[in-house]
Amino acid sequence: MDEKLLIERARSGDDDAFGELVRMHQDRVYRTAIRFVGPDDAHDITQEVFIKAHGEMKRFHAKSALSTWLYRMTINMSLNYLRGRRRELDRRERYGPGVSAPPPSPDSGIIDQEFTEAVWQVIDSLPEKQRTAVVLHRFEGLSAAETAEVMGLSLGAVESLLHRSKLALLKSFQESGLGEPQNDI
């Protein structure tokens, strides 16, 4: 069914229409959430996004695409969640016992996963705007213009963010030796 019609029906309180919209967009919201908060918390973020969307549907006037609206909510919620988690970690480091890293797994089948996580640790360390631009453009496949619309920035600003993030990531990859055969964990 046409998305516009579904939006109209969902706005008038039709939960089946809302459910159809959820099915159409749940994967992109979930994927984006994973890229920000990791797999453990992405499900909760995805639920929060759609719960909020359900509550705010009457106020959504389709001036922008529904996907743009959902991306914005996902990014805002993920970043807020990360800020809270960072504060909690800071608090624990200051006042509580130190957080120890889990012991390395003896399973060699996990090498790819560890390499992926090592790369994402570098991506996670980017400033929020650069990271958002990289996630949307590089991984979600949005054009620079679409990324700009989601982020509420000009095209030039997003292009600048993408250049700076690429340079920062390559520098970090070079310093950390990621990609070298002996360092592929």
């Binding site: 979930y30 499900h43 995805t46 994402w120 590089r138």
Partner: peptide
């Protein structure tokens, strides 16, 4: 490495999400 950046999110939302 740049051309083949690994994605953290290859999966999709659970089927019974809705």
């Amino acid at each position: 490495l740049w051309e083949n950046l690994p994605d953290r999110a290859p999966g999709s939302a659970p089927l019974d999400f809705w």
